[in-house]
Amino acid sequence: MRRFFRRNAAGYLFLTPWLVGFFLLALGPILASLYLGFTRYDMVSDPRWVGLDNYRYMFERDRRFWKALEVTFTYVALAVPLRLAMALAVAMLLDKGLRSIGMYRAIFYLPSILGASIAIAILWRAMFGIDGVVNQFLALFGIQGIGWITTPSTSIYTMVVLAMWQFGSPMLIFLAGLRSIPRDLYEAAEIDGTSRPRQFFRITLPLLAPVVFFNLVLQIIEAFKTFSSAFIISNGTGAPADSLLFYTVYLFNEAFRFFRMGYASALAWVLLVIIAVITAIAFATSKYWVHYENERD
């Protein structure tokens, strides 16, 4: 017993802050929101058990829930592949012995580190407004622009463009991945007369597959979490006509504007399940991800 204690003491002592946080701020709340999801709770009176009512309402009658799913999945389906394609394309351009790569890398990464800020969301609203700079640019070609954000059919694309603008971090991960591909493979292919596109599909892509996959999973989860920019650009409500009703924005409104905490907890659990499915796929293939690259710099 004493030995058992001594063997474990140090580890658990160092883990104490995290353990407290894990139980109080992660596991506890996850279980609590599972419970709250079966209740009606307005924060004034105690939670009242309603069984499956929240979920039944959500799946059977709540149009806004389905709209939120539609908006979010549309965003994920557009923003993630476009951002990754952009990141990979630029990473490949930067990879092959280019001078001043450091400068380009810094410039391309800069938007990623600023992108989450409210300042950028405010900027985006102004840029894509009816007389914003985007329409000023289009006017040069005689195109009459519209209010890209106030028009429900186009508003989501302003968010997609914002996501594409922030291709920096997947680009950095791709760059690290590209560097681990041995150069002589390309030289051999060159001697054999293999064309460039063929080299890409036969060498680059297969060897980069784990990194592509890793980026994909990560970016999908990130995209599901999108909140601040969507909140600011949609005026906090998912406007116009719910076309920017991201799942997180809907959840926030249900919880903190209408104080339907029970229902919002049910919404949170559905989001958790969606993310868990994606994470499960990631873990099932985790043997690919863990490789440590010491970046040459």
């Binding site: 506890g28 709250l36 919880a255 919002a264 907890s265």
Partner: peptide
Amino acid sequence: LFGLMMMTLMIPYHVVLIPQYVL
């Protein structure tokens, strides 16, 4: 515990938000 820690990385803040707020 390490597995649990890695899992928390994937959990969106929104999922724990309401109980944390109540707490």
